[in-house]
Design a protein around this nucleic acid. Structure first.
Length: 204
DNA sequence: AAGAGGATGAACT
DNA sequence: GTTCATCCTCTTG
């Protein structure tokens, strides 16, 4: 299990990174609780040309300025006033690429996750969906812009050696971006087939 | 200054 | 399948 270094995140191919993040491990050390899980669903957001991205057309605001930072930072924002969505910023500074983490399979810290989710037993909904996994891991919007490759960070991503073959990986259009014109159909969502923590409805 | 709406999830019918 | 909680950000006047 090896902490992923900064260079990994600087790759200009954000769609490739989204796919290669499947099988990697997110570790959070927040509020003195250690929780982790295997990434099993992601989506790429490739601004400036991607209408579904907050940074479409290079729009840079107070909320999304983290997307323009160098790859390897976390972009966390609040959606629908309730959910904290966790993204991995990629590419060099100035290129607003990001990967939304949509689901993980729980690994460590099950008790902490249950408590944060106010659940008393593990169900597949505990880390299914971007809002749910962030809640289970304790990721909040105040952790926006933390580095993911720094050993001292509250959120880190590791390579645990898991490799999924193409036949184990599903691809589809992204979820919840129907109003994004021609970008809505882009095959930028990747998930591990027949994993019970995968969210949403697959395409076709 | 005000209003619309969102990369969702949970609880319904 | 439908409804709604909940609030911040961005757009418009």
């Amino acid at each position: 299990m090896k902490l992923i270094e900064k260079a990994y995140y600087l790759n200009p191919d954000v769609v490739g990174i989204a796919k290669s993040l499947l099988g990697k491990i997110i570790l959070s050390s927040i509020d003195n609780q250690r929780t982790s899980g295997v990434i099993i669903e992601t989506e790429a957001y490739k601004a400036p040309e991607d209408r579904a991205s907050h940074a479409f057309n290079n729009r840079c605001t107070e909320r999304n300025k983290t997307m323009f930072m160098e790859g390897g930072h976390a972009y966390v924002y609040i959606c629908y006033g309730i959910h904290h969505l966790f993204n991995v910023v990629t590419a060099i500074e100035g290129i607003p690429h990001a990967v939304l983490i949509r689901a993980i399979e729980p690994l460590e810290g099950l008790e902490s996750m249950l408590h944060r989710r106010t659940m008393n037993q593990i169900k597949n909904t505990i880390t299914k969906g971007p809002g749910s996994l962030s809640r289970a891991l304790g990721i909040r919007q105040d952790l926006d812009a933390v580095k993911l490759y720094d050993p001292k960070s509250p959120i880190q991503i590791f390579d645990g050696g898991t490799i999924f073959s193409d036949s184990q990986i599903g691809t589809s259009k992204r979820i919840g971006v129907e109003s994004s014109g021609e970008s809505a159909a882009l095959p930028y969502r990747f998930y591990v087939k027949s994993n019970r923590f995968v969210s949403g409805t697959p395409w076709r």
